[in-house]
Write a protein that binds this DNA or RNA. Structure first.
Lengths: 159, 159
DNA sequence: GCTCCAATTGCAAACGATTTGCAATTGGCG
DNA sequence: CGCCAATTGCAAATCGTTTGCAATTGGAGC
């Protein structure tokens, strides 16, 4: 069995209900289910995957709407692996989710890269170009250990 | 007038025709026009922008098909700024196009960042995780000098 | 220059991810 | 327990991109 690749954020429902209440939002059945599904996975998940995991307990449109809400509430972070679908990762409260991923081009398996290797590059880039509020988007792509043996073509995640 | 932000690759038509011929491809009117449009811009362009620049001289589907072809021929490089549309940049022969961009979140203006600041990070990431053939995708986002004065909300390119 | 045929194109329909309008449903505060 | 704004499901709409197909066109060979 492979080692766990993603930590599973706690799901402090009372605290979450609290955060919803503060914004006059409801902690509904579908939303609760989505949060659970997100925690189950730990890593980045596509809306469709969440939808499938929910087995009819919630509509796909609702998943999308919920992801938007959770994103604005800072409860999930959106990632883009360049394959045309968004991915969302549950965040611990207070975590800004700034880290990067290493994605297998064959099996789409995702490894979390610890720590942002680019701490001050944003600042350098900002200064060098007169920009403000510079952030970046960085993801790595490669072939994972399991896929290195298998012969060339598989599903391609990106590039 | 703003300084030019992107170098304009030469358009050595005879040489290009040569490269097409070698692959039994035709250097057609639409393709020639697309190449010219790409050179005009210099920087990353969306298929739709190319289409508009061509003013009916070629269908949008043809633009897409051409971009695929040019990409496989190594004549353009595809970039993803996370706003749901692809961008393509004309490459000089021999250039692998590996550089990054700084995109204004307000006006979508793009500045080229010289040199890849991540020369050996790919290798480090590969080794640390047992992956092979690791590459990365990195783009910066911020607010450009021109947009820093204008008050908050404008069109949002990403994030 | 002219022929011929594979490569290419335009057009319209198909697609897949995501968004939205709307009427029916539902949390949660009073 | 009731009310009402927030939310949901469903279907239709959007948007970027791809594809099927019949008509068109480069360019290699004559």
């Amino acid at each position: 069995m492979k080692p766990r690749k993603h930590r599973r954020a706690r799901l402090d429902l009372p605290r979450i209900a609290e955060r919803f209440r503060k914004k006059a939002r409801k902690l509904t059945g579908p939303r609760r289910a989505i949060l659970v599904a997100l925690r189950e996975r730990g890593g980045p998940v596509t809306p469709r995957e969440i939808f499938r995991a929910l087995e009819g307990r919630c509509d796909l449109a609702t998943v999308y709407r919920s992801m938007h809400l959770l994103e604005t509430m800072g409860m999930v972070k959106r990632y883009d692996f360049g394959d045309g679908q968004a991915r969302f990762e549950l965040l611990e409260e207070g975590d800004d989710g700034h880290h990067h991923h290493l994605v297998c081009r064959r099996c789409a398996d995702v490894v979390e890269i610890e720590g942002c290797l680019m701490s001050d590059v944003d600042r350098q880039v900002a200064e060098a170009n007169g920009f403000k509020a510079v952030t970046h988007r960085l993801e790595f792509f490669g072939i994972c250990p399991e896929c290195q043996g298998s012969d060339s073509r598989g599903e391609n995640v990106t590039d």
